[in-house]
Design a protein around this nucleic acid. Structure first.
Length: 759
DNA sequence: CTAGGGTTAG
């Protein structure tokens, strides 16, 4: 058998390699270093599985520098960093002097610790090796400080184009666009990699105009350049543009590779367009695209997000037993996105190696499907089992779940957990904190988080504005809107909804009108807000005119606003008009029947009340049951009308009886027009059950510290009768009581409520 | 052996 240097055998498959390996064993040549080195080098090229390659390595009893080096290359290329380090140690122990070319690999593998290797490398005299110094720069570029990388760069007497490119992409990865551009302009020669780095850099800074400009100016494009530009569009939410560019690429004769397909498929996922998905699948079929693991995973995601979960599941199942966690996670979130938490949890439980994304997908799945308590429970399990460490994404879901629940104590515990675990919060993490504090009624803390943020985005503003709106702080909301424009952030549709709601909740008619007129293309939701505003301040006819004038079909929200305003201002005529349309638009929404019948009741029109109730019965409309809950002792205590299941139930009812006596003495009478309870005298309340708000407040009075603020959450509108009752309780007990209903806060204090447009 | 593009969670 001839020496590998002269062998003519061409190794193009794993089988060839195995044959040759077997041959060396037959000829008893396998312990020769030159054969081992030769075979290992081909293992790297052919992506041979690590165990087989290691077998070849181990068959050389006294590996020399070349065998070690090739094995190191193999590990380095497969990203097996710990193996690189171990093998390097073994090499030192064997007294084999390492070639300079192992240092770049070693430095990449040890990560940040390479900084300590720097001195050693200099002592060995490798300081001016092109590869070593470039890798060293790469280390500082990756781990910082980037200034040190620049210093190394400046000290090089002869810079290669690779050095320039490393430094440029280093600047981009630290967000230093100006420096990157400066260097790019100074470069003596550029290659396609330099240009592509600029495209990627600008996309990373969300400056797609510049990215595209550079892309168009490129003297030559590679497949990587196209992929970079497509990826840039996709990452910044321009899925359509990504797909358009892909078409352009194909038309100009470029063959898409697997990476291109992955990006195009993921753009399609974010659009969620089934037709596009279908056409992509067809195109890939025609072109006989090889589906590698990345492509298959992207396809699972695409099918799941484009509405065909079965297809997604089929591809998932076909991946067989060697599925990685990304595939599992993709399938899990596929299920949570359609609200199938059972299937999602089933997969989650079956996963043997859950990573942080698996936990986050499942937690977010609960949080986004209205199961906040489950989300928090799962987070606590995650923190206890320590299978993987929670990160910012975990905390965003958990914080927002606390917000939905109104769980302030828990929220504060979570904030403490974040500090303890040294989790850094970026913009979205802080945004979720703003949301939580707003939802818990702590606008001071919400504002504090907002003010302490170094950079804010449109969501930061929208969240705080929406918070102020729910609290009826109109002028703060307006101020914030001006501030955001000053900061160069453009208001979007959510901003306008927030500000208009805020104006509406604080009666700022002229400001709201002006705002509405300034919206370029008002959407139906903006009209609904404006109708609400006009209605609440009593301009009901104007509200009706606006509905008649609007260029699109009014939806239920628009008529809902009109109905609500009619009730506030006792305009039964308009109320009937709005309600009759609403009964057509959403026949099963009990709230509309309640509002109309309350209007009749307040005018003493009891026959009409009965008519509405009959319509409800005949239409099979179930009155939605509202829950009220209070946080105490790390738990949420939930109550429903007439609830007697709570462990403190007897104390609660006793306290309410005493309270009722005091309230009656102070002139309280249960409101007759709270018809759905059939209550004409407060004693009869016992017959239909005490309102959940009252139960929750009584419980809070029992357990909370004297003088502290009572916070009650409710998932429906605060009942009319309760609104009056809570005012009295706040005066009698000398307590501040904050009640949050669906979209608004009521702050009761000294017999007054913060909102005076409610009834 | 060093520089540019890839799948999942908010």
């Amino acid at each position: 058998m001839s020496h590998p240097c002269t062998t003519a055998l061409k190794l193009s498959t794993l089988n060839h390699l195995k044959q040759l390996h077997a041959q060396t064993i037959r000829h008893n040549l396998h312990h020769h270093n030159y054969w081992a080195a030769y075979l290992i080098a081909h293992c790297t090229r052919l992506h041979v599985p690590p165990p087989y390659t290691r077998l070849i390595f181990d068959s050389a009893p006294n590996p020399n520098a070349l065998v070690f080096t090739n094995m190191l290359k193999f590990y380095s290329q497969t990203g097996a960093h710990s193996d690189v380090i171990t093998l390097f140690g073994q090499m030192q122990n064997c007294g084999v002097r390492s070639d300079v070319c192992v240092y770049p690999m070693l430095m990449k593998s040890v990560g940040k610790a390479a900084v300590e290797l720097h001195a050693h490398v200099l002592k060995m005299g490798y300081g001016c090796d092109v590869y070593v110094r470039n890798t060293m720069m790469g280390v500082y570029v990756k781990y910082g400080p980037v200034e040190v990388a620049r210093k190394l760069f400046d000290e090089m007497c002869e810079k290669t184009v690779v050095d320039w490119n490393s430094m440029i992409s280093g600047y981009w990865s630290w967000g230093c666009g100006v420096e990157a551009c400066e260097l790019f302009d100074l470069m003596p020669e550029r290659n396609v990699i330099s240009w592509t780095a600029m495209v990627t850099g600008f996309s990373k800074m969300r400056d797609l105009k510049s990215a595209r400009r550079v892309f168009d100016e490129m003297p030559e494009k590679s497949i990587v350049s196209w992929n970079a530009m497509i990826s840039g569009y996709d990452k910044n939410g321009f899925a359509e543009e990504a797909i358009r560019l892909f078409t352009e690429m194909v038309n100009s004769g470029f063959q898409p590779n697997e990476i291109t397909w992955v990006k195009v498929i993921s753009s399609c996922s974010s659009r969620g367009d089934p037709c596009l998905a279908e056409s992509l699948v067809k195109m890939m079929d025609e072109k006989r695209v090889h589906l590698n693991y990345f492509v298959k995973t992207a396809l699972i995601d695409m099918h799941a997000k484009c509405g065909s979960l079965q297809t997604a599941r089929k591809i998932f199942d076909e991946l067989g037993v060697h599925k990685n966690s990304v595939a599992w996670n993709t399938m899990i979130s596929g299920y949570t996105h359609v609200g199938d938490l059972i299937s999602a949890k089933e997969l989650f439980e079956r996963m043997s190696e859950k990573d942080v994304v698996s936990w986050n997908s499942m937690i977010a799945g609960y949080a986004q499907n209205g199961q906040s308590a489950r989300a928090i429970e799962l987070f606590q399990e995650m923190a206890t089992t320590k299978e993987s460490n929670p990160d910012e994404v975990t905390m965003v879901s958990v914080i927002s779940a606390c917000g939905h629940l109104g769980a302030l104590e828990l929220g504060n515990w979570v904030v403490n957990f974040i500090t303890q675990s040294q989790i850094k919060l970026s913009i979205s993490g802080n945004n979720s904190l703003i949301f939580m504090y707003s939802k818990c009624g702590c606008m001071k803390d919400a504002r504090k988080v907002f003010q302490e943020m170094a950079t804010r985005d449109v969501v930061s503003y929208n969240t705080l504005i929406t918070g102020f709106a729910a609290h009826g702080h109109g002028s703060e909301a307006l101020e914030l809107m001006l501030k955001m424009k000053d900061e160069g952030i453009e208001p979007d549709r959510v901003t306008y909804i927030g500000v208009l709601t805020a104006c509406s909740h604080s009666g700022l008619l002229e400001e709201g009108r002006e705002m509405f007129d300034s919206i370029e293309d008002p959407e139906v939701d903006h009209y609904a807000c404006m109708v609400d505003l006009l209605g609440r301040v009593g301009k009901l006819d104007e509200a009706k005119e606006l509905i008649e004038r609007m260029p699109m079909n009014p939806h239920a929200g628009v008529y809902g606003s009109l109905l609500n305003a009619s009730r506030i201002h006792k305009r039964t005529d308009l109320g009937e008009l709005a309600a009759n349309i609403l009964f057509e638009l959403e026949p099963q929404n009990s709230g509309n029947y309640v509002l109309l019948s309350n209007m009749y009741a307040s005018k003493g029109r009891w026959e009409d009340v009965e008519r509405v109730r009959k319509a409800m019965r005949e239409g099979g409309v179930k009155k939605t049951t509202g829950w009220s809950w209070v946080e105490y002792g790390g738990k949420m205590h939930k109550f429903i009308v007439g609830d007697r299941s709570h462990e403190r139930s007897s104390d609660i009812y006793q306290l309410l009886t005493e309270l009722r006596k005091k309230m009656r003495a102070a002139g309280y009478r249960a409101d007759k027009s709270c018809v759905l309870r059939d209550v004409e005298e407060e004693e009869k309340e016992e017959l239909v059950g005490t309102h959940s708000e009252k139960l929750a407040i009584a419980f809070a009075l029992l357990v909370s510290e004297a003088g502290s603020v009572i916070r009650v959450m409710k998932n429906l509108r605060v009942c009319w009768d309760c609104h009056i009752a809570i005012k009295m309780i706040s005066a009698l007990e000398g307590r501040e009581i904050i009640v949050r209903d669906n979209n608004r806060f009521h702050s009761f204090s000294k017999g007054q409520c913060s909102c005076n447009d409610y009834w």
